[in-house]
Amino acid sequence: MSQIQQDPKPFLKKFLSSLDIQFNSPTSSTQFANVDQYATSFGKNLKRSSAVIVDGTPLIPTGTDDARLEFQKKWIQVPLTMHQLNSYDCHLIPGTGVFVINLSVKVKFDESGRSKLGESADLVHDSTGSRNTRPIWGSWFGVNINMVVDETVINNGDGEVISSFDYRFTYKPDDSVIRI
């Protein structure tokens, strides 16, 4: 019985945290040489050819940019996130070597007005001298995620293993200013 080892949970947690990475976090050991390196760290378990759908809109490869890169280009424009895994369930589909995984997740966004790179579109800056750039987390959104993931994820969660990724908001709090 290797069913207990066949648990994609560590992979799922790692994948979700790859969506939440900060560019310059004082508490994190992760440092990125440049913005490209930062952006390509989001969802790096996606295959380049993945089918990616965010809130009902497909991310379609353009020119030289594959679907994963389109996702990463989109994700760097989204304010900083914090995902929490509430629930998941999965089936290994016989004869395919893949899991179908349904995740129930919540996410909150940094509503400070800053981008992931710490930039603000405000023309007038706060001049009180405060340099506190901690995120200001908004209310929780509900999200349902569906993924098709190679069975090999059990042994190696670092590879390009996700062949489809469908991210759907199921609840949007009405006090949020975030648009995706």
């Binding site: 009902g56 179908v100 759907r168």
Partner: peptide, 22 residues
């Protein structure tokens, strides 16, 4: 149907996909 995964959660209505973006 090869696989059927059903997730149940508190009632949240339809606003997540019908609200006009703010």
């Amino acid at each position: 149907v090869a696989s059927d995964l059903l997730s149940i959660r508190p009632h949240a209505g339809k606003d997540a996909w019908n609200t006009v973006a703010k």
